[in-house]
């Protein structure tokens, strides 16, 4: 019994370490994208640490809640945060293994994130604000379309590797290296589109807007303030970093450490940061050069992603 317990403790410790690492890095990514977007518009943009300042400010601030809010409203951000944090333990980041990969693979990851999403969407409805309902309804619509596409995209990679375990997927990708196989390219493009949708980026949602009527994710947060808001913002940032890391794991595994040696880890850190940075540039350019889609055009975008995943799958088995 003891070795099981000690291994479980060790896994839990590693999981906590990875979660803390991603929590620490996530605000940086958010600000980095904002900064690069600003530069593309000839603006100065926020300082690189702005994300941390914002979180620190929100965590210190007073909490204002609606008179009509119930426990659902209070639970929303906490469950959303917990879901995002625990999802980090399923995805390999620096080492080609995830701390809790044995618990489940793709399905558990998507399910955990969906749990957070559900909690937030329900909480948004709780106060009776029409904007909350609007955001919630739109977010659920997009989720209903994007989640199947996300799963199909991940299954495509999974079929090639013969596993749905994210650690094993990363190891298989590492073994094959970057192939530029047409099926990989197509699968990547399909997943990238879904990542944009899942993280509320243009052309699906506009994270920078002040127009309540056009919001999706932000509309759900309008009633939140102080630490509650900080939790949601932080968790969203973690989610985004997690999705980009997932893309890195599946399609650009180069530089990932295979053991926990300090030198290998350091190199893996540099490689990971570089690859996430490249993806962040891609997100920035997409956000800058496109207008937001009309709400009812989003299904078309998702169907493009589905089509790409199908094509990738077909090519893989040709």
């Amino acid at each position: 019994m003891t070795p099981v317990l000690s291994d479980a403790l060790r896994a839990f410790g590693l999981a906590a370490l990875q979660a803390v690492f991603l929590l620490a890095m996530a605000p940086l990514l958010k600000t980095l994208i904002k900064m690069m977007k600003a530069r593309l518009q000839n603006r100065q943009g926020p300082p690189l640490l702005q994300g941390y300042y914002d979180l620190a400010k929100l965590l210190r601030k007073e909490t204002v809640r609606s008179e009509t809010a119930s426990w659902v409203f209070v639970a929303g951000p906490r469950v959303y945060f917990a879901a995002a944090v625990s999802a980090t333990t399923l995805v390999p980041v620096l080492i080609s293994a995830a701390p809790l990969e044995a618990a489940g693979g793709v399905l558990l990851l998507v399910g955990t994130l969906a749990l957070g999403r559900f909690a937030l969407a329900t909480a948004a409805l709780d106060t009776g604000s029409p904007f909350g309902g609007m955001g919630s309804s739109r977010d659920m619509t997009i989720a209903a379309l994007a989640e199947p596409a996300l799963m199909l995209g991940l299954f495509t990679s999974g079929l090639a590797a013969g596993t749905l375990n994210l650690g094993a997927l990363a190891r298989s990708a590492l073994q094959h290296g970057v192939t530029f196989h047409p099926s990989d390219v197509l699968a990547f493009a399909g997943l990238f589109i879904i990542v944009l949708a899942e993280t509320g980026r243009v052309p699906v949602d506009n994270p920078a807007t002040h127009l309540e009527l056009t919001m999706i994710h932000e509309a759900m947060l309008l009633e939140y303030s102080g630490p509650d808001l900080a939790l949601v913002e932080w968790a969203s940032a973690v989610k985004e970093l997690l999705y980009l890391t997932l893309l890195v794991d599946l399609f650009m595994p180069v530089g990932m450490a295979t053991s926990a040696e300090p030198v290998a880890l350091l190199m893996a850190l540099v490689a990971w940061a570089g690859k996430v940075f490249v993806l962040a540039i891609a997100v920035t350019i997409t956000e800058s050069m496109n207008a937001k889609l009309r709400l009812f055009r989003v299904p078309e975008l998702v169907s493009i992603s589905l089509g790409l995943a199908f094509l990738a799958l077909t090519i893989r088995f040709l």
Binding site: L40, L211, T214, K292
Partner: peptide, 9 residues
């Protein structure tokens, strides 16, 4: 308003 930020700026 349609989030086309480069043109806007």
């Amino acid at each position: 308003d349609v989030a086309f930020s480069v043109a806007a700026s």
